[in-house]
Design a protein around this nucleic acid. Structure first.
Lengths: 223, 223, 223, 223
DNA sequence: TATGAATGAGGATTCATTCAT
DNA sequence: GATGAATGAATCCTCATTCAT
């Protein structure tokens, strides 16, 4: 009956830990190691989830000793949170840039979709988003961080743009204005769908996102 | 050495436990216990995820001894899977029923949204869906089950209806036809959003779903 | 690396238990059940040893419920001991009979060997002897019982016979007189050898025992 | 609920433990620990058998933590097998040496008996042999190992020697030639007898083995 | 710094024994 | 009497964390 050999014990999650480890290691070598550990952690956490990931495996994959992880991160939880933080913040800039231009709404939306497909969906970052979705409820701090650093910023960048679009008559002052989340929905769905059903019934993320834009803005005339 | 010569095992001799003196037949009590365990498992798994959940806690919450779980489920994994199965299968019927009626597409969609809000979003079943999303990638069989028993059936029920809608001119033969997933997207997003950010920035699922319908079908004339 | 799936927990052995259960159940049906349980226990204990045997399996094999075992035996240990007792006592009589005759020593020895081969080596009783060897050190009571009821009796029956043989000039007053154990040695060795190496390098017990008699008495002239 | 927020794991912060400040290189200490664990395992396994032995007890007796055992051995079974292997392999050499000399058969046999008495019967190795006898049937690999590494080698060393003895007229080409096992029989019997009945009726192993040699080769002229 | 051996609390699972039916 | 569901102590094994080297 065993479905999968992932039976692992876990430590109970979450408490108000407050000692953020030093944000910037001194030497280049150190910073390299930190990166190696984070990269390894990304692989392992996204393959198994927080509780089932063994620091042993992370260390092995990063090519360092287990104890070394503790020189860079306070504990497993801190490593996990640092991982999420380090991966998500950079994208926000790109998205903000894409949303900041002054072209037509449709063009901007396509631009943003492109950024999403290239920088998130096409990379390991999609796994980070899955991790946030999976583990967030047990890591309120993390969810909050994600909300503040990613979601809120994107929505903040979105609002004036949508406002302008309404003023220009490119958009009715309706659903999307009230719930800008609707714009990002298909991206998230594509990530989740393919993580679950990618093997059985893969979803073409680009086409899916594109179809959604058609839905919001009406079909494009000619590509 | 310490060979304790009086190590005892077995049922403890009745210490003010709930009088099991009930006249109910054995099978009724058994199925009640099974349900109690599943209910407890739902609480625990959705609060902590698969790996971090302790069967000890499940047992305690269900009011049974640890060993009792093993009378009803082969192991932790099996309990988890049975939980998912038992929770999701029933809903599909309701959704199929909602989708099977012959009214206008908009009406049908609103009906389905209603079922979703009432039977999934308004119940613990939303947590089950979160569990599938979180743990599915590590439990391929589970994802497959979910796909076969839930997703595929809903999509199968959806297609002819959408086809009819196109024929009737209620829908353009575009995005939604190719990707019926778009219809369910906001439901999933609402679940995920509120699990993560419900405390910080709650999302009104009903309004959200409704706004999405406006997006797909155009604003309703009069509310 | 796993050699065998016999990892099982055990209860610590042995204490001066003193409540021998009723030696003779009332009805025929009861006595039948008791026998069935003992027969099943023989199978299971000799396949797995005391600690690794599950009463569940014994019950199943005996076609009774687990609780029923406790109607006939105090506990696992008592079942085990009763099993040994019930199996060994009967043979002693046959051996004593074989040894009691007044023929030549060689003939008597061959007679006894025949009894051994037929009633012990050729039956499940050889497994009982293996059990005594394996578990005896942890069940001093059992070893003592075995010594008293089996070993001592056989030796007692042997001594006068050997004495007579010496007087008749059939045997030198040497090794065998001082250590009658030497006569039984090959029987035990055959049991142990085949239990361990029977698959790899089987030992023909009859030939082996016979060769040993040749050693003790000199080759036979003509069969 | 009870999410203990301070559950700690890992090495406890040094409470008056044996100063590990030794200058010994890591490997020496490791091999010492391995030995300590094996020694403890020998005690425990031979006192209780495989199934009833607790690794907890082994660890305690070895003066290490439970987890440490798993640094040296894959699991309980592996520990058990390594124990057998490590104990038995060395003896074979001594026995082969004793059997390889070119003296008279009787002398060689006495030499071998001496080695057995000193290196097996006089040490814990007799318990290892008991363990093989007791647990071998449930650990076929182990029985096979024992056969290959011990039994087969001894028999292989024995055959040419016996052959020579026949040629020299020291032995009739009979029982012992066909069944060299007969030579070792009393050693095994002595081990088993004393393990079972040593308290009640101890058997003088040296005299017993010696008596057996008298049986095989005829009484010695003068002691 | 970096290492990785050592620790031991934690948790899944088993199974002898009890007892309501 | 017989049953077998329920119990929970027992025990294997894991792995986050520490710290001597």
């Amino acid at each position: 009956m065993a479905v999968n050999p992932t039976r692992r014990r876990g430590r109970r999650p979450q408490r108000g830990r407050k000692r953020p480890n030093s944000p910037r290691p001194r030497t280049a070598r150190q910073s390299e190691r930190r990166e190696a550990i984070l990269a390894a952690a990304l692989e392992e956490f996204s393959a198994r989830g927080f509780a089932a990931t063994r620091l042993d495996d992370v260390a092995h994959r990063a090519g360092v000793a287990k104890g070394t992880i503790y020189l860079y991160f306070h504990d497993k939880e801190n490593l996990f949170q640092e991982l999420i933080r380090s991966q998500l913040s950079p994208v926000v800039g790109s998205l903000q840039a894409a949303l900041g231009t002054d072209r037509s709404l449709r063009e901007v939306a396509e631009q943003a979709a492109e950024v999403f497909l290239r920088e998130i969906y096409g990379t390991r970052r999609k796994d980070v988003i899955r991790l946030v979705i999976s583990e967030g409820p047990r890591f309120p701090q993390l969810a909050e961080f994600y909300y503040r650093e990613v979601i809120a910023r994107i929505i903040a960048a979105l609002r004036p743009m949508l406002q302008r679009a309404v003023e220009r008559g490119e958009l009715r002052a309706g659903a999307v204005i009230r719930f800008p989340q609707l714009l990002g929905a298909p991206g998230i769905i594509a990530i989740v769908w393919n993580a679950l059903f990618g093997k059985i019934d893969p979803l073409d993320a680009r086409a899916f996102v594109s179809a959604h834009l058609d839905l919001v803005f009406g079909e494009r005339k000619a590509p």
